[in-house]
Amino acid sequence: MTVILKQIFQLLKLLNSETGTHQIAWGVALGFVLGMTPVFSLQTVLVILLLLFLRVQIGAALLAAFGFKFIAYLLDPVFHEVGHAVLSNAGLKPTFTTLYNMPIVPWTRFYNTIVMGSGVLSLALTPVVFFASLFLIKKYRKNVYEKIRHSKIMKAIKATGFYKLYMKYEEFYG
């Protein structure tokens, strides 16, 4: 429970920071791909490398991956259906046969219906997730965050010794 609460606070902190909106949105999008992938495979390594080398919010990616993992679990039957449809497509069979016989490529486990289904759907939905995140972050900062910041409760909290202590902690340890 503490871990989940910590993750929620981290997300709120991220949202309330001055970190670039695009970075968070890309983080959520890449986290979405990570969360949808059912097993640790070559594409997971690729996404992690992208997270390391591109200026995207790693925290957002990890939180998104954590969140989408639960949704992905529920979507497994859909992934299976999509993956099955793609893999049993006669027109694609020569391509898959070639990929299957290539070095390294089989390590992606593309021949698994859920891996293929989640891969196809997550790739197709990445732009959607990116723009949706962008939109929601902007809305949140404009409406929700500003309202909370200026609310009486927030002002009362900010006046407490505990908050000051927290701010001191933040100053030293970030």
């Binding site: 893999l87 049993s88 069979k93 046969t97 021949y111 698994n112 859920i114």
Partner: peptide
């Protein structure tokens, strides 16, 4: 049949 999903097997030309 697999625990999660199905593994498709394609003809192996070189293994």
């Amino acid at each position: 049949e697999r625990a999660e999903g199905i593994d498709f097997r394609f003809p192996k030309k070189k293994s």
